[in-house]
């Protein structure tokens, strides 16, 4: 127990690259607080110009879907191809779609 308390909490790091529009999960690290987490992320994950913006969130605040429920969760979407917007006839005037 006492060992567990000595460890700094775990944080998840999200980086936005210069060309990117969204922050992408880069990895995780340990830090005492949010400020230190951002600075550690700068040192660990942006050493090679990977990004221009950093988000961090304590790992315990991330809620994930249950892998055991994956079948019920995701498989039903498999045969519903009509959900893809590929069945429309686009007018010729419309470009860049």
């Amino acid at each position: 127990m006492s060992n567990e308390n000595k460890e700094w909490p775990l944080w998840e790091v999200f980086i936005r690259s210069k060309a990117g529009l969204d922050h992408k999960h880069a990895g995780s690290l340990h830090a005492a607080d949010a400020q230190m987490a951002i600075e550690n992320a700068r040192d660990v994950y942006t050493r090679r110009m990977e990004g221009i913006s950093i988000w961090v969130v304590e790992s315990k605040h991330i809620h994930a879907s249950n892998p055991e429920e994956a079948a019920a969760f995701f498989d039903p979407a498999q045969d519903k191809i009509y959900r893809h917007p590929t069945f429309y006839n686009l007018p010729d005037e419309l470009k860049h779609m």
């Binding site: 340990h30 600075e39 550690n40 040192d43 660990v44």
Partner: peptide
């Protein structure tokens, strides 16, 4: 003392 600070100092 921790990996992250090790990297910070090395940087």
């Amino acid at each position: 003392p921790v990996l992250e600070q090790d990297i910070a100092l090395t940087n």
